[in-house]
Simulated scan of single mutants.
Amino acid sequence: MPPIRTLHIALWTAYALVVVVHIGSLLVEAETIQRVTQPLFAPLLIAVLISALPRRTRTSTLMLIGLLFAWAGDSLSQFAPEAAQLVSVLCFLGALLAYSAALFPLWNRHRDPLRIALAIPYGGVVIGLFVACADGSGTLLPAVAAYALALAAMAFLAAGGNSLTWTGGTLFLLSSSMLAMSWFLPGASIAYSAVWVMLTYTVGHALLIAGLVKAIPARRWAPACRAGAALVIVES
């Protein structure tokens, strides 16, 4: 196995281990470990992306931008707890917009009717959740509305990509929905909500990135001529 592919697998393994440690820290309420592990999610996924793709493309650039926004959402809110909700909403809004732009060409090429039909309820879920949480969002209402629209669009486009992006987008939608309920819906109670939010977020985010990487068949460990030819076909 080429060393770069071994590194790629090792990075996925490291991501999985960090996620497991983070989820465990939520269960035992170890806040210090939570603060240390959460900012590591996006950098590890960035390293996974860089280790797989031999050259920069439009899709990989948008993925990188989305991951940088996600890192900001995971990290900056820790340094501004009084504005944590606003920081998280705005940062992940940027991530969702970048991922939607990356997913659109893939959705446009495939346009699987079944996946598109199954994705229609996503809009209903997001609209219903936004209406329920509107009163509790207060001054964050405009930002929450923009986030809800971006979330629905990303989940819809992800469903029309491949099975990995579809599953990842759905889990991302589920994670954001549970988080919105815990933040803005008075009286909403989900057992171990923080655990479920982070589990669906980390797994969904990883699957979304894996699906987008899969859509670009060129690999660093593949022969240069094959990788280049595949890239021309996909990106043209």
Score class of each variant (00 low, 15 high):
residue 180 A to E: 04
residue 179 L to F: 10
residue 172 F to C: 02
residue 191 A to T: 14
residue 184 F to C: 03
residue 170 T to E: 01
residue 186 P to N: 12
residue 197 V to F: 04
residue 181 M to S: 12
residue 192 Y to R: 11
residue 178 M to R: 09
residue 193 S to T: 12
residue 190 I to G: 04
residue 190 I to D: 06
residue 195 V to N: 00
residue 187 G to V: 02
residue 192 Y to F: 15
residue 183 W to G: 00
residue 192 Y to P: 06
residue 188 A to W: 11
residue 187 G to I: 11
residue 197 V to P: 00
residue 187 G to H: 11
residue 171 L to K: 06
residue 185 L to N: 02
residue 171 L to D: 05
residue 190 I to K: 00
residue 177 S to L: 13
residue 175 S to D: 00
residue 184 F to T: 09
residue 195 V to C: 01
residue 192 Y to L: 14
residue 176 S to K: 10
residue 183 W to L: 14
residue 187 G to M: 04
residue 176 S to I: 06
residue 179 L to C: 04
residue 188 A to S: 15
residue 182 S to R: 14
residue 190 I to N: 03
residue 197 V to H: 07
residue 194 A to C: 03
residue 179 L to T: 08
residue 199 L to R: 06
residue 170 T to I: 05
residue 197 V to M: 01
residue 192 Y to N: 12
residue 192 Y to G: 00
residue 175 S to E: 05
residue 191 A to E: 10
residue 187 G to R: 12
residue 193 S to L: 03
residue 180 A to I: 01
residue 198 M to S: 06
residue 187 G to D: 06
residue 170 T to M: 09
residue 180 A to F: 10
residue 196 W to P: 01
residue 191 A to Y: 13
residue 189 S to T: 15
residue 194 A to N: 13
residue 180 A to L: 12
residue 187 G to Y: 09
residue 181 M to A: 15
residue 181 M to D: 06
residue 196 W to I: 14
residue 190 I to S: 03
residue 181 M to Q: 14
residue 172 F to H: 03
residue 181 M to V: 10
residue 180 A to V: 08
residue 177 S to M: 14
residue 182 S to H: 08
residue 173 L to S: 07
residue 191 A to D: 10
residue 184 F to S: 00
residue 186 P to S: 14
residue 172 F to D: 05
residue 183 W to A: 07
residue 182 S to K: 10
residue 198 M to Y: 07
residue 191 A to W: 14
residue 171 L to N: 06
residue 194 A to I: 02
residue 184 F to I: 04
residue 180 A to G: 15
residue 189 S to G: 00
residue 177 S to Y: 07
residue 181 M to I: 08
residue 179 L to S: 01
residue 170 T to L: 14
residue 173 L to Y: 00
residue 178 M to E: 02
residue 173 L to H: 01
residue 190 I to F: 15
residue 176 S to R: 10
residue 191 A to I: 13
residue 191 A to C: 02
residue 185 L to D: 04
residue 187 G to N: 11
residue 192 Y to V: 13
residue 180 A to C: 12
residue 190 I to M: 12
residue 199 L to D: 02
residue 178 M to N: 08
residue 193 S to N: 15
residue 174 L to V: 15
residue 178 M to T: 09
residue 177 S to I: 08
residue 184 F to K: 11
residue 186 P to M: 05
residue 185 L to Y: 10
residue 171 L to T: 05
residue 176 S to L: 00
residue 199 L to T: 15
residue 178 M to C: 05
residue 174 L to G: 12
residue 170 T to D: 01
residue 191 A to V: 13
residue 195 V to M: 04
